[in-house]
Deep mutational scan, measured.
Amino acid sequence: MPSETPQAEVGPTGCPHRSGPHSAKGSLEKGSPEDKEAKEPLWIRPDAPSRCTWQLGRPASESPHHHTAPAKSPKILPDILKKIGDTPMVRINKIGKKFGLKCELLAKCEFFNAGGSVKDRISLRMIEDAERDGTLKPGDTIIEPTSGNTGIGLALAAAVRGYRCIIVMPEKMSSEKVDVLRALGAEIVRTPTNARFDSPESHVGVAWRLKNEIPNSHILDQYRNASNPLAHYDTTADEILQQCDGKLDMLVASVGTGGTITGIARKLKEKCPGCRIIGVDPEGSILAEPEELNQTEQTTYEVEGIGYDFIPTVLDRTVVDKWFKSNDEEAFTFARMLIAQEGLLCGGSAGSTVAVAVKAAQELQEGQRCVVILPDSVRNYMTKFLSDRWMLQKGFLKEEDLTEKKPWWWHLRVQELGLSAPLTVLPTITCGHTIEILREKGFDQAPVVDEAGVILGMVTLGNMLSSLLAGKVQPSDQVGKVIYKQFKQIRLTDTLGRLSHILEMDHFALVV
């Protein structure tokens, strides 16, 4: 994948999101292997301009796509893939009243899908469409860049269908997702969380590099694949309309690839034109409109599966009536509230959605109805927002919020430890010299600072030695090549209790 991002070429006709291997024109390309080798690009942008032909009021008969309808489940399912879809609609009884809503608040519980998330729908649909058009064949390999849930859905379907599955996901995604993927037989590649989507090191860039190296491999490409919004247009939206008897006044959905909100909203605009569509985008993402909503100094966020630093091709923002931004604290607070007060075992993005819903639905009156999409299960986040310690460490809970008995030293300040200034190293000294210094002084790690004293990161003896043994660096290389740029900081005025929580999850903390 090139470091400079080429513009994806656009073909003359058809839909841009065809499933299957992508040609340089962004659509299915038939021909000899030699032709494909000559024409197939190194990668295709996940934010390529959409060429979708959908228009409100256009006859369904003019759609270029294969459409399906929700099917009634048999008493005995032939395999677990038949437990994807037909998820329950559940009334939220307490939270709406707590925040003064007059309307009825309903939750579409997508964590009841077989793999635990709304992404099971698009995973199965992308595979079925690729099999139907002859792209996927027995023994082929599926590769997908994902925040985890699409990966789980694909790995689940691949396990049943017999495909090899490789999932490329950023490091910030939970260990629970990784464990589930491994249990399903998927191979996992992790990428830096802070890598831009168009960087060769991003999950998108690495996935395309693997595709170019592995024979008979395919990126189904949830960011561009029409099967993504079509899955929701054909099934999720129809289920909502049936469950609500066609009567709903507002739908609120958090947005990642945009397939969920695009597919549902398009069908609702056709069948229930008075329904307002509300999009939820986390602070630090750029999906919301108008652009002024996205202006923030924050560039990272903890909530998973929603928000991006690019506009995915499948996201149709014209069908969203209003956007709201959400933050991590309210997302996790509301997710825990949904679990504790409503018994809905949902993930953090569901918290984002409901946090926005109780604001947006203030305009609705008694007798009206708001539906929220709860995308995934708490299963993926047992060591994250479900953990009091994690919430404390991230600053989303305060010590006084917890009532468990603490040891005698818990409320003492870090400054009472009488710490001395640490050994520091410059980023320009060599790895070999740094190892000598650390061994001589008896230290395992040291902060790396520039000549102005600005902290650049941390270097550890173990990481340097393993990097040297693996051949990633040489003793003569500058130590700046092996620094940890993500590390926890703590102030002298913070409590030892807070430091204790940090050290339970990290090997060190830097006192500043």
Rank of each mutant, 00 (worst) to 15 (best):
I80G: 12
N216S: 15
I166T: 11
C15V: 07
G151V: 00
D238M: 10
G100L: 04
C52G: 02
L230W: 04
S73C: 12
A159F: 05
L42Y: 09
T141W: 09
S174A: 06
W208T: 12
G162K: 04
G134A: 10
G185I: 01
G205H: 06
R45A: 13
I261P: 00
R276A: 12
L248T: 10
I44T: 11
A130I: 01
I143W: 03
D238A: 10
D120H: 05
E9K: 13
R224C: 12
P41G: 08
G115C: 07
C272L: 11
S123C: 03
G205W: 14
L56S: 10
K39D: 15
I261T: 13
T68G: 13
K97R: 11
T260W: 04
V204W: 06
S202H: 06
S27D: 12
I166C: 06
S254G: 05
K137P: 03
F197N: 08
C272I: 07
R209V: 08
F112A: 04
P229G: 05
N113M: 06
E104K: 14
M173G: 03
I92E: 04
Q242C: 14
D79S: 11
G96W: 08
R196P: 13
I127M: 13
G20I: 15
A207Y: 00
S3P: 10
E213P: 06
P6G: 09
R196T: 10
H17I: 12
V118C: 07
I127N: 05
D198P: 06
A237M: 04
H67P: 03
N225W: 00
A186T: 11
W43D: 02
A231G: 13
K72R: 12
G96M: 08
G139D: 04
R276Q: 04
H218N: 13
R132M: 09
K119D: 01
K98T: 10
G259Q: 01
L230Y: 13
E62H: 06
D47R: 05
G151P: 00
G263E: 00
D140W: 04
I80R: 06
G162C: 03
P59S: 15
H17G: 12
C109F: 05
W54S: 06
P41V: 12
A158N: 02
G31Q: 03
F111P: 03
L268Y: 03
R51T: 09
V189K: 07
G151R: 00
D86R: 10
L42S: 02
T87A: 13
H203A: 12
P78N: 09
L248E: 01
G115L: 06
N225G: 01
G153A: 01
P12R: 15
P78M: 03
L56Y: 09
K211N: 15
G274D: 10
P46Q: 02
S217A: 01
H22K: 01
I122P: 00
R224P: 07
D234V: 03
C244L: 05
T13C: 04
T141F: 13
P64W: 02
C15W: 09
K39M: 13
L77R: 07
T5D: 02
A231R: 02
E270Q: 13
K108L: 01
H66D: 10
K94Q: 13
S217K: 05
Q55H: 15
G115W: 07
L77I: 05
P229W: 05
G134R: 12
P12K: 09
R51G: 07
K72V: 10
T53N: 06
K83H: 10
D79M: 06
S27P: 04
I84N: 07
T135F: 10
I95D: 00
T262G: 08
Q7H: 14
P21G: 06
A195F: 03
S202K: 07
S50A: 08
C103R: 03
A265C: 02
A130Y: 00
G115V: 06
S202C: 01
I92P: 04
K172D: 01
C109G: 04
D120L: 05
A24I: 11
S147L: 00
E40N: 10
P59T: 11
G259S: 01
Q222S: 02
G256E: 01
P46K: 02
V255T: 11
I143H: 00
